[in-house]
Design a protein around this nucleic acid. Structure first.
Lengths: 335, 335
DNA sequence: AGCGTCTCTGTTAACGCTAACAAAATTGGT
DNA sequence: ACCAATTTTGTTAGCGTTAACAGAGACGCT
């Protein structure tokens, strides 16, 4: 009592009503006399009463907590998404419980989801950018509200995603528009849907321009792998434009090009993806594509909440368009 | 039943024991016959039983959840810390609930803490790098296990922190050792304890070398503010060495110096702080100080768990030493 | 006045688990 | 084989809340 604070019955006693009436006030039930409602509110304030979420969760079978499963919350994208999700959830009165996971393999994901389920979360958001995550998701009890972000477009699971294809197309087109005859691509890991989408968009833009796409160079999102690819690109005199799957890869490429004395954008133009806050201060400032993480978070949460309220598990799909941010890393090719 | 999965009584029935015995097996109570234990385990596996955390939390008064309050989980430091915290907590069987907060003022912090308390978290970790957070923390119910990270060293609250002073001293000393006569400093926001500590360490190293510290230039952690400071530094011919309070500031400085044609490290040496993964790919690769976020997370959690178990609220203090990572952004001054 | 129909409030019974105690089974020493 | 100590199991009573139903007034109609 002393330690755990007052309970509903204490409020009821002080207000001179039954605990059930207090419950009704708390849950905004209509049939409570205005005067009673005020008395209860006053008692709540006086005692500093705070409803016990565990008890509520026990009886309703659902808590006011949303579980998020993500892999590497240190990467800029996932971190931004998580923060946005948390903000949005808080506005709706939900807490967010993170379950990060070392690998996005089947077992790790299941384990994280299990942990969330055992806490009886109201719903789960899975940031599942790779193939292997999909399997784990299909075996889930299907009465659990679930939304995937950046997941597999081919699976029948509610999905919110940044329009990778459109973003990549815009980036590539921007380079073509500047006069480049073709655009090379440093991609992310090919088992990530994000990567696949960005490769697709890049390829589409080239094909639409009647250009045969060169082979994409696979990276792993890190500046280190961008650097390695950059070392190769720097040695190829015909390369004048590069689109990298994220800004960190671009940083590595910029560094390699700089070391080889190839000037950006004079000799080679570079475009990234993500618009990390530092991108404007790369040398030179990086032209990139900015996904709207807030919009993604809002859409995911809205989708999740509608499932929670309706009880039905719709298989919706929502896509958020990213925007090109032009800076100084792009210029027309020298002739 | 069907929707919410089997309960303890279902397991008990299948195993031919009472639900209390199941509870004992689950909680590792010693006095259970080996044979019984196995039978119960088998039943649990067969039914896919998952204990109900809400019910457990209700009766014990504590959930297996740790609340984290942080401001900007998009910044590299907090994000890394959060991820490490989550990993460590998961190993101990705890989930982590994030409560991010727009501002670290008194009211926002209290609100976030309230939200956690209403979910009956077992303990709270506050990543509270600024002064204003301290007040909010002192009014908390003192029976809640609490640990602050990077908080106010002068308050009687359990605290884990990176040794900012030692890190900054090492960075500054490294520059002095290279032969520089003095070292300039681009600091973080001065209401952050991290910044204060780094300023202190820098100043200490200079004073110990018999040098009068130049005025620190205040930034706000962002590359943008680093760039602004860099523009000033670039115009000052006497500057040969700069220590920035984090790597993003350093990036901004590097960019400004580059624009002004001042070469790093030939004319000016730069050292950062944080060792973000990209720092090795800046132009030139950045010498920096690497805090051990995993160690901080482990220490915080251990401190929190010992409070949870013992019930006592010790006012411990623990400091984690960072390590200097030497790269190519430092060289002896030209003479 | 009498009676159904609202609106408001109270009573009781879960939800799934652990704690405390009670009972039964096992062990060991004689 | 018998009693006491010990180990193992079962029984009961909550934890704080919501849901379902029951009861008590207030109101309008015949």
């Amino acid at each position: 009592m002393a330690v755990h604070g007052p309970a509903m019955t204490d409020v009821a006693r002080l207000a001179g009503v039954s605990h059930q009436t207090v419950s009704r006030v708390l849950n905004g039930h209509p049939n409570v006399r205005e005067q009673t409602r005020l008395r209860v509110r006053a008692a709540i304030a006086e005692l500093g009463y705070r409803p016990n979420g565990a008890a509520r969760a026990l009886v309703t079978g659902r808590s006011q907590v949303i579980g998020v499963v993500a892999q590497n919350t240190t990467l800029y994208g996932p971190a931004s998404l998580l923060a946005a999700l948390e903000q949005t959830a808080a506005e709706e009165g939900f807490a967010v419980s993170v379950g990060s996971v070392r690998n996005l393999d089947h077992r790790s994901i299941s384990a994280a989801v299990e942990r969330h389920l055992s806490h009886r979360v109201a719903g789960i958001v899975v940031i599942a950018p790779v193939e292997s995550a999909g399997e784990a998701l299909e075996r889930l009890p299907k009465d659990v509200p679930l939304v995937t972000v950046d997941g597999d477009p081919s699976r029948p699971v509610p999905l919110v995603t940044v329009d990778q294809v459109a973003g990549a197309r815009a980036a590539t087109q921007h380079l073509l528009d500047a006069g480049h005859r073709t655009v090379w691509h440093v991609s992310g890991p090919t088992d990530w849907f994000d990567s696949v989408g960005r490769i697709d968009g890049w390829r589409q833009a080239l094909l639409a321009a009647g250009v045969d796409p060169p082979p994409p160079m696979p990276g792993d999102w890190s500046a280190a792998s961008g650097y390695r690819c950059g070392q190769m690109l720097a040695r190829m005199p015909e390369v004048t434009a590069v689109f990298t799957a994220n800004d960190h890869l671009a940083l590595g490429v910029l560094r390699a090009l700089h070391e080889f004395g190839r000037r950006v954008p004079d000799e080679i133009s570079v475009v990234g993806f993500d618009d990390v806050p530092e991108a404007a201060y790369f040398i030179p400032p990086l032209t990139t594509v900015r996904p709207d993480f807030d919009a993604v978070a809002r859409a995911s949460l809205q989708m999740l909440l509608s499932q929670i309220e309706s009880g039905t598990g719709g298989a919706l799909r929502q896509t958020v368009a990213p925007a090109l941010v032009a800076r100084q890393s792009v210029a027309p090719p020298r002739r």
